[in-house]
Simulated assay, not measured.
Amino acid sequence: MEEILNAAPQHVVTLENINLKYNGERGEVTALQNVNLNIEKGEFICVLGPSGCGKSTLLNIMAGFLKPTEGEAKMNGKLIEGASWERAVVFQTPTLYPWLNIHDNVAFGPNVRHLPKKETEELTRKYLNLVELGDFGDHKPYELSGGMRQRASLARVLVNQPGMILMDEPFGALDALTRQNMQTLIRKIWSQTQNTVFLITHDVDEALALATRIIVMSSRPGRIVKEFETDFTYDIDGVNKESARYTRKYMQIREEILNIINEQNETLKL
């Protein structure tokens, strides 16, 4: 874990003066305005903001699903010009092929990339075990619970060993206990794999539990209002676990984030 904290910064994704506009029913809409962001290797970034502030739009630009109206989005110094396995996306609803079993769903990406059969099998087994589904490879998606399907979707992303994982409210549809278990699992996986993660959430406590950096966005047009460097994920991953949630620093940052979001929600009403 110290290697992540002490390593020299290496920008995986860079956003420079990003603006995105589109034509709505009432004319031109500015979804994002002057967004600048550098994401370093090994960071776990969580994004918060009022509904409709452009969080998902920002993720879609990084994924290569959308092109900004102005500005540049780059990965490892190269323009992002389309979707790529190097930037894997995990959605709120698990994306699994219902006609394939869980093993074959996870192996799908490596097979498409024509990796050697032995390597594909080794990677598939490794990541099924990592998400604690090693005994469920022969099950079809409909035979698994919602949390297990989301874990399978995560394994399907991880098996491609992407440079960045983009997650759009991946736990939003889960019940409270399953959601907490998934948070614990994603912390464990992040600490083991040192993946770079960009996760959208509406849950401030989820962001504080997971992130090494929290980004708070304004109401539309979406801008970055404030960033918070956090280290609660290290404490929670260690022996202290839940005690990190009750420190003065945790509560102060939590209150400040909620105040910013509430102010932005009030702006929407004006």
Results as ranks from 00 to 15, higher is better:
residue 94 P to L: 08
residue 129 N to R: 08
residue 75 M to H: 03
residue 135 D to I: 04
residue 139 H to I: 04
residue 82 G to V: 08
residue 122 E to M: 05
residue 81 E to Y: 02
residue 163 G to C: 05
residue 123 L to T: 01
residue 160 N to P: 02
residue 103 H to K: 11
residue 190 W to Q: 09
residue 94 P to M: 11
residue 78 K to G: 00
residue 181 N to E: 07
residue 106 V to G: 02
residue 124 T to G: 03
residue 120 T to F: 11
residue 189 I to K: 01
residue 155 A to N: 04
residue 128 L to G: 05
residue 84 S to H: 02
residue 183 Q to Y: 09
residue 185 L to R: 03
residue 95 T to E: 10
residue 178 T to I: 10
residue 155 A to L: 02
residue 93 T to I: 07
residue 179 R to Q: 12
residue 180 Q to I: 05
residue 111 N to M: 11
residue 185 L to C: 05
residue 118 K to Q: 15
residue 87 R to T: 14
residue 99 W to L: 02
residue 98 P to C: 14
residue 111 N to D: 15
residue 92 Q to W: 13
residue 175 D to R: 06
residue 127 Y to F: 15
residue 126 K to T: 13
residue 144 L to Q: 13
residue 149 R to V: 00
residue 191 S to I: 13
residue 179 R to V: 00
residue 84 S to P: 06
residue 94 P to G: 01
residue 187 R to D: 03
residue 90 V to F: 04
residue 172 G to C: 12
residue 133 L to A: 06
residue 97 Y to H: 01
residue 137 G to A: 13
residue 71 G to M: 11
residue 68 P to K: 05
residue 79 L to G: 11
residue 150 Q to H: 12
residue 154 L to A: 04
residue 89 V to I: 10
residue 140 K to W: 14
residue 108 F to Y: 14
residue 66 L to D: 12
residue 72 E to G: 00
residue 117 K to T: 08
